[in-house]
């Protein structure tokens, strides 16, 4: 994309988008962050000049970024809280390890989005709790082949939307 088109696009919408988000967020800084992330995301968009409704497009993109931000924060907080509750002395995660863990969590959460709640629970019981197929089958009152179907289905869905 030519820099010129982006420049025109940026200068004609930057302040509008920021003030729009300030009204929504009631916070200057949050709004400034989301505004920037929005434009960065559009930096390599090929048809900026041909958008029929650039501002509608901008608010949609900004909303998506906002949702991701809220999700990330939610995952991070919950994960950290449980970590602190459950961990004994010998285990203290470094900030780097935590950051890597949160990145993985966000990626996994995005992939699990397309999966039904039941399938998700079965998968996490197996992958994270280490429950055997037979144990899960008993827990849900279903057959072992059915459990395997669920597990495989989750893997397939996650891998077809994979960000990894």
């Amino acid at each position: 994309m030519s820099n010129n088109i982006f420049e025109v696009f940026y200068t004609s919408h930057y302040f509008w988008l920021r003030s729009y988000l300030v009204r929504k967020f009631k916070c200057q800084h949050q709004a400034a962050d989301v505004t920037q992330d929005t434009f960065i995301k559009l930096l390599n968009h090929s048809n900026l000049s041909e958008l029929a409704q650039p501002r509608a497009f901008l608010t949609t993109t900004a909303t998506r970024i906002m949702i991701d931000m809220i999700r990330r924060r939610h995952l991070e907080t919950t994960y950290l809280q449980f970590l602190q509750l459950s961990k004994s002395e010998q285990f203290v995660d470094s900030p780097e390890q935590l950051a890597i863990a949160v990145e993985s969590l966000v990626a996994i959460a995005n992939m699990l989005d397309s999966v039904s709640p039941k399938a998700r629970e079965i998968f996490l019981m197996n992958r994270l709790d280490g429950m055997k197929h037979a144990e899960i089958a008993v827990h849900f009152g279903i057959s072992i082949p059915r459990v395997r179907q669920y597990l495989a289905q989750v893997i397939v869905k996650c891998c077809s939307v994979s960000e990894l």
């Binding site: 994960y79 459950s86 863990a101 993985s104 969590l105 992939m111 994270l128 709790d129 893997i155 990894l164």
Partner: peptide
């Protein structure tokens, strides 16, 4: 790769975070 992406997570905390999501 997908399977291993769970590797460096604390299992119990990750499960709570993901189910609560």
């Amino acid at each position: 790769k997908f399977w291993d992406s769970f590797e460096h997570l604390d299992p119990a905390s990750a499960k709570s975070a993901l189910l609560d999501m």
